[in-house]
Write a protein that binds this DNA or RNA. Structure first.
Lengths: 344, 344
DNA sequence: TTGTAAGCGTTATCAG
DNA sequence: CTGATAACGCTTACAA
């Protein structure tokens, strides 16, 4: 069933059918009615592939993301909502071999470009030199917006979090509270946002004249269990060396903080009495975990919204001006931490 | 840039270019090499829209889901993985006005059909009569697989959970443990999976000769905070009526159980000493919450995998035979519950 | 107001 | 092995 059939059945030409279907002017009421009647009766659904081909516009937006998981669900939800409101559909691609694989990212980009999506939102975990070269090329082929990473020197708009300021603020909260031995549970080293957080942790200590003690730094992979294990490893290592546990720990994300608190409780370490734990992300769990986490709340929903709006504006206005949007943040003080120098 | 350009540049016809691009036989080495060289040099990317139009096959699969959120992320991840392995891309649509809106579902279906996706996976929360009529029509237009709901009398394959057996098993665990006053925190009433769970709760009690006490049943909406509030309401209501709290509560999902446990602790009710809480879903967080939840683990990843595999098989073999896949389940006994009749 | 015909970028049939 | 040419279903000058 196509517009030829509809044309035949309503006794007009395909041009007229097309005009009616697209609400274009220059059609008599009579012709319009005849066509509409046939369209309704046959439940005709126009073929968007053909329209896209003829219009060089698909009304589809693509996402290239490292993985489909709960961390990104709010962000994707927001993107989808904006897209839907603006008449776009959403195609998603993610990596499987390795969340950080540039080859797979490239594969996904090509998939979307073949499908002639109108624009792409890219969630990189890491932008290395080869990524840079790749993006430099892609940027000319298709409108794109990047989240999380700001890439200097390329004409791609981005929506980023300021990872350093909140980390410094949360560190200041701990330091002002009298904590001096502050541990860190780090995330994956290829994640640039993660690295900025860690960098801010280090500089916060240094600014107060505190040396970074490598024994207080453990590595995780952002999962609950990696945080759990990191705490156990830290405790064991410190035990072996005859050192005390830190009075506070900064975990690179909420999940690892929760894992670490779970391990602490099992080891008889009370949180926050014996150990303050703070973290980053402000996921929904962080509020309902017991104790409620002290964390930096990142508004993933707004991030997604801004990314989608920025992309669609770029697509529709063909503006070439690069935009950089920096998300604001919010520190949430929960019950997983306490100042040392205040009783109660 | 299209195959005409490539043809011109390599001195062959578009037919030959097409053959080379699709790895078809009947092309001389010489011609193949010439074309490949030009393709690589120009970084030519064939237009999938045109291919899809010519082939009547888009290699895209669509999802119609009630909302994009963490509950579905594993399921969607699995679907995407299977699709990717089989050469399909994924387009997702979800509802905003109302997760249960049949109008919006229909809108989403039409969107995907216009885009000529090769098949659709539908996550309904509820299948009422109008849904039934809708699906009956759609089923003839496009290959489809439904999750969660089994729809009798329509030729649509489905992948479902058995909601009743696990609920009964978990109820038996509580009842065998000596619990008799067992409360229930119910989910949204339009959700059919939810209703089956509740039905199994009721029949489990009746089978043991226990009357359902309406005062022990509260309503939530699957969120943390609704579980939190449900518990507070239950406590207040029972107080008012001079009744005791139940010794156990069955929550329709993990999030509400967690909310309820949080509220309990704040009210001085110890879990599991004073109150056993069990629930359903087995989300990742249920294991790391303190206390670890007693729950029914539903394998959302496998569910997604099976749905995608079933759909793709239907698309590619044009089989019309209806398949119904029932997921297995696993009861996880955590520390949020305890038998009453065992000391320790 | 309407219709014809060329074009969007492919595939595939059918001669050569 | 190769190349015209007619589809695929739609939009849009251009003419009438």
């Amino acid at each position: 069933m196509n517009i030829y059939d509809i044309a035949k059945m309503s006794g007009v030409s395909i041009a007229t059918v097309s005009r009616v279907l697209n609400n274009k002017p220059g059609v008599s009421e009579n012709a319009r009615n005849k066509v509409m009647a046939v369209v309704e009766q046959t439940e005709f659904v126009p073929n968007q592939l053909a329209k896209s081909l003829a219009n060089s516009k698909s009304f589809v937006i693509g996402i290239v993301m490292p993985g489909i998981n709960d961390y990104y669900s709010n962000r994707v939800d927001a993107i989808h909502k904006v897209c839907k409101e603006e008449g776009y559909s959403l195609m998603i691609t993610s990596n499987y071999k390795d969340t950080n694989s540039i080859e797979e990212d490239l594969f996904n980009f090509n998939l979307l470009i073949e499908k002639r999506v109108d624009g792409i939102i890219y969630f990189p975990t890491h932008v290395s030199n080869p990524h840079y070269e790749l993006l430099k090329k892609l940027e000319k082929k298709i409108p794109m917006v990047i989240t999380d990473s700001d890439i200097e020197g390329i004409d791609i708009s981005c929506v980023v979090q300021d990872s350093e300021t909140p980390t410094k603020e949360l560190m200041a909260y701990l330091l002002d509270g009298g904590h001096e031995r502050i541990g860190y549970i780090n995330g994956l080293s290829y994640d640039q946002v993660n690295n900025k957080r860690y960098g801010a942790y280090v500089s916060s200590l240094k600014n107060r004249g505190i040396e970074v003690d490598e024994d207080l730094v453990e590595l995780g992979n952002f999962s609950f269990s990696s945080g759990y294990q990191a705490l156990i490893r830290m405790k064991d290592k410190l035990n072996e060396k005859g050192k005390d546990m830190p009075t506070a720990i900064f975990a690179a994300n909420d999940k690892m903080a929760i894992g670490a608190i779970k391990a602490s409780k099992e080891l008889g370490i009370r949180v926050p009495e014996d150990l303050s734990v703070v973290s980053y992300d402000g996921i929904e769990y962080s509020e309902f975990f017991i104790p409620k986490l002290t964390t930096v709340k990142v508004n993933q929903y707004k991030l997604g919204q801004l990314a989608a709006q920025t992309l669609i504006e770029k697509i529709e206005t063909k503006k070439t001006k690069r935009v950089k949007v920096v998300m604001d943040h919010k520190i949430v003080i929960g019950n997983s931490s306490r100042p040392l120098n205040q009783e109660g």
